[in-house]
């Protein structure tokens, strides 16, 4: 993947430094031209830790200037995310409290729209946006693994093993998505659609990297995972039905039908054997588990709101 197009003064300056390899100017960067400029810059800085860019030297992954800027941007972002969170549930019977918290969350339904009303063009756009995450699906959770106690670590690996196809590259969820894209006539190249990713997609992906890459936020990462899984089975079925209605190829449907079944398992694991055990060991992480869970649902709502508004216009 090549660096995306800049979206303002900050990303412009940073991308230039990344291409030239001279990161000294980063210590005196301009203010971002708004949230999208800041979020795209942060996304690119995180991407250095994922797969990198063909036009950026791999040596820059741990460049101190870049890490300094990343810290600044992610501190702002974390503050924004925490500021958005409402009053979170009090500690109690965890699994029940968690499932109730997710069930009582009332957000706009993008999957409901895709199920019944969306046009083929709208679904293509949706799939292009989803490539930013699904082509590296679950990788952010893998970052958390070495930061956990043995019991929680083993439980996360049990879930991740399934995400990664239980060792079969043909069953890896990211591979299933790539196959579906190709069969649907879309580009399955990693990062191909980053230039059209809206702010809400950048925020979703950045939140996952923020939680995954910072050990102190491990509980938020696992809470994010649990809410993500717990809000996936039913929407995945609706999306599969919508894809079927619009005549999408079976490979694309398969990605979503696989998630109906897989995520019905994963939500139980994430809540009971992962977050539940984490909180038995470290009850003080309660709030961060729910903060991560809230963030997962809130960011998906923001994306849904945006797309439903755009498509209604």
């Amino acid at each position: 993947m090549l660096l995306p197009k800049a979206r303002g003064a900050l990303s412009g300056c940073v991308f230039q430094a990344l291409q030239s390899g001279d990161t000294a100017p980063i210590s005196d960067t301009p203010e971002p031209d708004g949230t999208e400029d800041a979020q795209l810059t942060l996304w690119v800085l995180y991407e250095l830790h994922h797969r990198g860019f063909e036009d950026v030297s791999d040596d820059l992954e741990w460049d101190p200037h870049l890490i300094g800027l990343r810290r600044q941007l992610e501190t702002d972002f974390e503050q924004t995310l925490r500021g958005r969170a409402p009053q979170l549930p009090e500690p109690g019977a965890f699994a029940e409290t968690f499932f109730d918290f997710v069930a009582s969350h009332d957000g706009p339904s993008l999957s409901g729209h895709i199920h019944k009303f969306a046009t083929k063009d709208q679904v293509h756009e949706f799939l292009r946006h989803k490539t930013i995450y699904h082509l590296k699906e679950s990788d952010h959770t893998t970052w958390v693994i070495p930061r956990l106690s043995d019991p929680v670590k083993a439980a996360v690996v049990e879930l991740q093993y399934d995400e990664y196809g239980a060792g079969d590259p043909n069953r890896l969820h990211a591979t299933l998505f790539a196959r579906g894209l190709e069969a649907s006539g879309l580009d399955a190249t990693y990062g191909a659609y980053i230039d059209e990713a809206p702010l809400e997609v950048l925020e979703q992906n950045n939140a996952m990297s923020l939680f995954g890459l910072n050990r102190r936020l491990r509980a938020a990462s696992l809470g994010f995972l649990a809410a993500f899984e717990a809000t996936s089975s039913v929407p995945s079925r609706r999306i599969a039905q919508g894809l079927d209605r619009l005549g999408f190829p079976p490979e694309m449907l398969e990605y979503y039908t696989e998630h109906v079944e897989a995520d019905a398992v994963h939500e139980q694991l994430a809540v009971r054997t992962i977050c539940g055990v984490l909180l038995e060991e470290e009850p003080e992480l309660h709030e961060d588990v729910f903060f991560g869970a809230w963030t997962s649902m809130d960011l998906e709502d923001r994306y849904a709101d945006r797309m439903l508004q755009e498509w209604a216009a």
Binding site: A166, E261, A262, V265
Partner: peptide
Amino acid sequence: RPVSAVCRCGKSQIKPWCDG
């Protein structure tokens, strides 16, 4: 899969597996 979820409520559309 490594762990499977068997429906116990009887309402799943993909029985015998749970679909939430």
